[in-house]
Design a protein around this nucleic acid. Structure first.
Lengths: 232, 232
DNA sequence: TCAATAGTGTCTGTTAGACATTATGGA
DNA sequence: TCCATAATGTCTAACAGACACTATTGA
């Protein structure tokens, strides 16, 4: 066997691998996470994230899509990798290595039928395995970090939407309130949306104009689209 | 075997795994990457990133540290995970899954003795395996994305340094020029450095005051420390 | 009419970025 | 002395954030 400092061994080792999905959805002005009750093999109650091992030649992304689809009954609106988690924390399948993904679903009132899965408010999560707990925490960070560089928010909305709906999605994903006037100014400056000639009236109040996602030229996105905080 | 939508199989599958390191260093005002010549098993010349499989109970981070140390002869100044790469692109060890890390080294003139490794300018990289090419590209993105939230730049400098040196490191890591006055203002506003009472004279010009990294209160880092571009 | 929401105009303090100037050493 | 680099002051346009106001519907 040859000796090279840059590659001390010439073959990759066998490892048990899992793909774990943090499905997030806006629900009652908060973020909710999809978890299922773990089979009662151990004494205390545990909940688990959807997960599985990749099959055959399946890529990580394909495996993640399959697991998300199985858990939801439908394809999620967005699916992105978070990171690999290879510490020694416990995992429900005792995987040595877990690759975490986050998925976004538009409507948190929806639940796959006949499933033991439930939505939990992000602030009131039940006990999960430590490895999956770390993946959940990383999922929130990843969503927030990518939100202003990637059109994640628009995937949670129908093709046309009001600016108030869009702002609400941003607020839920970021976990904080935004300033209305500045939010709209930033949207305008970023050329992300264009108005339609439709308006929608909901309950009381002035009807809102509908917009659609229509990113123009990539613009000099030196610093992405940053939205301003509200005072309170 | 039980049927749960959230976890269709109960055991994680065996997979071949590698940990691949993108070692970056400032060199001649540019970023350089450490690569080694691949053993000539195939016809055309290939270069490879340092990599290896984790051993035994070793965590991903531990394996990455070991590989980086083996390639450099010393520990790097920083080491962070990028992501997992599980597509079907080719890898030098034919790993099904590779976890990429980036490492930072202060001095790019340094080379481990007796090694076939070489620094390549980031803009003029030789042919590497497609999987590792993707890891390199992701490494640049990761460094730039984390630079304003994490004190990566300070790890490339000795305990005391001039502000011009610090700015040069930022410029190399970001791959673009920064505006001097705004850079210093941003530093001041972020309470990241404090002056020492030492000065250093190098060649002509006024001597520069030495500073040290001394982050104060975490401050309301709503938007991290952002540095401004230079006009040109 | 009132309540509620949509959308806009304006003001102010802050700051990014440019520019100019002073400071201080070496050649 | 001239040159090169450090360090700082000032100016301006842009913008964040606050506030107030108008617009438009349903109750």
């Amino acid at each position: 066997m040859r000796e090279r400092p840059s590659s001390p061994s010439s073959t990759a080792r066998q490892t048990t691998l899992s793909v774990d999905i943090v499905v997030l959805t806006p629900r009652a002005k908060r973020l909710a996470v999809l978890v299922a009750k773990a089979p009662d093999t151990h004494s205390r109650e545990r909940w688990i994230l959807p997960w599985d091992a990749p099959r055959g030649e399946e890529s990580l992304a394909d495996a993640a899509a399959r697991v998300a689809r199985a858990a939801l009954g439908t394809a999620p609106a967005a699916l992105e990798q978070i990171a690999a988690f290879g510490d020694n924390r416990r995992h429900p399948g005792d995987a040595e290595l877990s690759v975490g993904f986050f998925a976004l679903m538009p409507n948190g009132d929806y639940l796959p039928s006949g499933s033991e899965s439930t939505w939990f408010d992000a602030e009131e999560l039940p006990a999960v395995f430590p490895r999956q707990r770390a993946i959940i925490d990383a999922a929130f960070d990843a969503v927030r970090a990518r939100l202003d560089q990637s059109p994640l928010a628009f995937r949670l909305l129908p093709p046309t939407f009001t600016l108030s709906e869009l702002q609400a999605v941003y607020e839920i994903l970021l976990g904080r309130r935004l300033h209305k006037a500045s939010f709209r100014r930033a949207l305008q400056a970023a050329y992300l949306v264009e108005p339609t000639d439709e308006w929608r009236s909901e309950g009381r109040g002035r009807p809102a104009q509908l917009f659609r996602y229509a990113p123009r030229k990539r613009r000099d996105r030196r610093r992405g689209v940053r939205f301003d905080l509200v005072s309170g």
